[in-house]
Structures are given as C-alpha cells and as structure tokens.
Simulated assay, not measured.
Amino acid sequence: MAVFTEVAPAEAGALLTELHLGTLVSLQGIGAGIENTNYFVTSRNDQGDEQQWVLTLFERLHADQLPFYLQLMQHLARNGLPVPEPRANASGGLVHHVAGKPAALVNRLPGAHQHAPDLHHCAQLGAVLARMHLAVADFAPQQPNLRGIDWWLATAPQVMPYLDAERQALLADEIAFQQQVAASAAHAALPRGAVHADLFRDNAMFDGLPGHEKLTGCIDFYFAGTDTFAYDLAVCLNDWCLGGRDGLLDDARAEALVAAYERVRPLQAAEARLLPALLRAAALRFWLSRLADWHLPRPASLLAPKDPLHFEHVLRERIANPWHPPR
C-alpha cells in the first residue's frame, strides 16, 4: 500500500464520474504496505451524502490477472463475508485504469487494525477464515498462488548473494524440504481453493469498544490464489499467534484460532498432520519476500520495507519446535 504512482485529483474524480459515484471530496495516499499504490477516496453524491472508498493502482499485477482477485472479493462479499466489494463500471467490468495503471475501487470498511490480538480477536479471525474457505466451494475461477514454489525458485537465486553462508544454507535446505512436501501424495490430496494467502493483522479490521471489538473487514486480496486451505490457516497462525520471543507461537491464541476455525470447518486428519510443514512454508514465503523487498527495493514515495529477520526467526522456530493443532 505504498505510493508508487501519484494520482491527480482530476484522475480520481474522473473515475468517480465513470462509476456514477458523485464528485471527489478528498484523496489521501496510504503509506502502509509494499506492493501497490493505495489511496483513501471520499466522494459526495447528488444527495450530498459522503462515501468512503479505497483506490488501488496495481504496480506489478497485469490487468489480465486482476479479474481473479476482484471476482473473489465480489463473491465473498455477496456471500456475507466482511470483504470490500469492488465497484463495477456500466458494462460490469471491475478493472479500471487510472494514471496509466490498472486500478480497482472498493468500499472502505469500518474499523482499525488490531496489532496486539487477544484470544477473542484470534477466534473471530479463525471463524471468518473458515467461512471464506467454505464460501469458495462454488467459486469457479482458478489462479496459482503467485508466491508459491515456482516464485521461491525464481527469487531465491536473486537474494542469495546478499546472505551469509548460514542463511544461504537455511534458504536452500528449506526450499528443498518444501519441494518434497509439495510433491507428496498427502499434500496433493489436501482440500484447496481460492485463499487469501496474506491475511495478516494489518489486513483485518476490528471495530467496537476495547475488549469487545468485532471483526469488520478482511482486506487486500491481491496475493490470493488457488492453494490449500491449511496453508492459508498457517499464514494466519504465523502472524496472529506469535508469543514472547521471536517466532514462538502462543499456544492459547493458536488453539483459540484453530478451535474457532474447526467449529465452522473441521480440519481433515491430513491437514492437521501436515500443518507443521505448512507453517514452515508460510514462514519461508514471507522471509523470502521480505528479503527481496529489502535487498531489491523499488522506488516509492512512502515505502518502508519490512525487516526480513522477523520471518527468519519464525522459520527457525517452526523447524526447531513444530506446532501441532490439538486433536
């Protein structure tokens, strides 16, 4: 959500006009994140009512890749999930163009990020994640996880020169391990479908009084892809349930998240058995992407790449102390 591309008010106003959303009141760049350009947009309709939107300009994804993400968001929103719904033009298209880039406009959901989640935040997240996984049963579009093994194999050689020998060995050994897991019959049989694949704390919104917040939104689906549901769960566990020292899982929060998930969608035995390996896969994916963002940065007016050391610690912890869901 950094600002790579500057958007002029006239350009944002033209999109609002095209989508019959009134006139532009304000346009504010969003500095968080590292992939796309995002702005908060406020519009005013003919009745004088103001509405809040998020405008996204896609910096890496091509226009022909975007329908999968936007249709997934539309599908989930229309199935009652707390997901922003993209606005379509008169012909039903969800992909627009602003400042020479493919773009989307979605409704802005209420609430704020919960950076220190407690048991009830984790439980709500687990339940909504399971609802998402059930809701995609009739979602037909398919698209590979673009940050999966093929991307790891392409990206690892680019960051290797920046690593010392120990980290090079860790990266190479873990990729080899994950290739073996992915090639196994057990992994091939895991339930799968369209998954978020990046549902960190800063991609969820909560609203309400302290201690009684309700999950009001899951956002930023632009790393979504077809993958295993258990991998999606592992991504969440690695972020929402971290304990005291770097990488350690807090058992109480992890168990609360998984228990709430299973009340909606019980895990198959194979999913529970492979979850320790998938927790390692999720840690590897984000360690590698942060290494790439750190050592191979792109220019942006509000860009702040995240330290890759965090997910290196997570990966080492998942290898040393595998975490199994209670059975």
Rank of each mutant, 00 (worst) to 15 (best):
L109K: 01
A112H: 13
K101G: 02
A123W: 07
P117D: 10
L105H: 00
V95D: 04
G126A: 13
S91N: 13
H113N: 12
R108H: 04
P110R: 05
H96C: 05
H96F: 02
L129N: 15
A127Y: 09
H96T: 04
V95N: 02
H121Y: 10
A127V: 12
H121L: 13
G126K: 10
H120K: 09
A116D: 12
H115L: 12
A127H: 14
P102L: 02
V95T: 07
L119M: 14
P110N: 01
H121S: 12
N107I: 03
L125P: 00
A103T: 02
L119S: 12
V98P: 04
L134A: 13
D118V: 06
A123Q: 12
K101F: 00
L105E: 01
R108A: 05
A123L: 12
A103Y: 06
L105R: 01
H133C: 04
N89C: 07
N107S: 13
L134F: 08
M132R: 14
G126L: 12
N107M: 07
A104F: 02
S91I: 00
L129C: 15
G111N: 04
A104P: 01
H133D: 07
G126H: 10
A99L: 10
G100P: 03
H115E: 07
L119Y: 09
L94P: 02
Q114E: 15
D118L: 11
V106D: 03
G111E: 09
S91T: 15
A103P: 03
H97Q: 15
V106E: 03
P117K: 11
Q124H: 10
Q124C: 13
L119A: 15
A90F: 04
H121R: 08
V98C: 05
A103W: 00
V128M: 15
L105T: 02
H96N: 03
N107R: 11
L109N: 04
V98Q: 01
R131G: 10
G93K: 09
V95I: 11
P110A: 00
A112V: 14
A130Y: 11
L94V: 08
G93N: 12
A130F: 13
H121I: 10
H120F: 11
L94I: 06
Q124I: 08
S91V: 07
G92E: 06
N89A: 06
K101P: 00
N89P: 01
G126N: 14
A99I: 08
P117C: 13
G92Y: 08
R131Y: 10
P117T: 11
H133S: 00
H121K: 09
G100A: 06
A99P: 06
N89I: 03
R108W: 05
H97N: 11
V95A: 07
A116Y: 10
P110E: 00
L125T: 13
H96W: 03
L125I: 14
V98R: 05
M132N: 10
N89D: 13
P102Y: 02
A135M: 02
A103Q: 05
G93S: 11
V106L: 14
M132L: 15
H115S: 11
G92C: 05
H133Y: 00
V128D: 08
A127E: 15
H121M: 09
A103R: 03
N89Y: 05
